[in-house]
Nucleic acid binder design. Structure first.
Length: 155
DNA sequence: GCCAACGTTGGC
DNA sequence: GCCAACGTTGGC
C-alpha cells in the first residue's frame, strides 16, 4: 500500500486508535477490485511512502478486515463522496489494516531498483498510480531478508 | 517545477 | 464508440 506521508504516514497508522485504520477513499476500479475481491485477512502489507525526496517502504502492516463498503462514498460532506454509490449498491470498497512494525532500515526506491526481485514490484512500474497493489510472496520475503528479519506475521 | 503516464469525462 | 481535453499522480 502506498501513501503520501503528508496525507497519511506510517507513523499516523501507528498513532491510530488500536493502531488500525481503514484504507478508504480509493476511487479507482482496478484498486477497488483488489480491495473487494483479492485482499484477505492476515495478508501482509508493505507500506510505501510516495511523492517525497526519498520514497521507501517504511514498515509492515497486516490486513485485519476484508473488503467492505467504503461508507465515505455515502457522506455528502466527505471529499470522497460519490453519489453513484449507495447502501444497496456500494461501488467502492475498503479494508482495515493494522500497524505491525517499522522497518529498521527503510527500503528506499533506490534499493528496490537495485534488487533483482524487488525491481519488478508494482510500485516500480512506470505510470503506476494505485494506492493498493499486489505483492508477491517472493517480494515480501525479499524485504524481510534485507532487514534480516523473521516474518512477524507467522507468530 | 517539470513532465510522462494514466484514468475519466464529455462532445460528437 | 472514438478521441481530445483535462486532472491527478509521482519520480526526478
Amino acid at each position: 500500500m502506498k501513501s503520501e506521508p503528508s496525507c497519511f504516514s506510517f507513523e499516523d497508522l501507528k498513532q491510530s486508535p488500536g493502531q488500525v485504520t481503514s484504507w478508504d477513499g480509493v476511487r479507482n476500479y482496478q484498486a477497488r477490485n483488489l480491495l473487494r475481491d483479492e485482499i484477505k485477512n492476515g495478508d501482509g502489507v508493505l507500506f510505501y511512502h510516495s511523492n517525497i525526496k526519498e520514497p521507501a517502504i517504511v514498515g509492515l502492516a497486516e490486513v485485519v478486515r476484508e473488503g467492505y463498503p467504503d461508507y465515505t462514498a455515502w457522506d455528502p460532506k466527505s471529499e470522497h463522496f460519490d453519489p453513484r454509490s449507495s447502501l444497496e449498491n456500494p461501488v467502492w470498497y475498503m479494508v482495515d489494516i493494522r500497524y505491525v512494525v517499522h522497518l529498521e532500515n527503510p527500503v528506499t526506491r533506490e534499493d528496490l531498483k537495485a534488487h533483482p526481485v524487488l525491481c519488478n514490484m508494482g510500485v516500480m512500474k512506470k505510470g503506476n498510480r494505485l494506492s493498493v497493489m499486489p505483492v508477491a510472496e517472493t517480494e515480501w520475503k525479499a524485504v524481510l531478508d534485507l532487514e534480516n528479519m523473521a516474518d512477524p506475521l507467522l507468530f
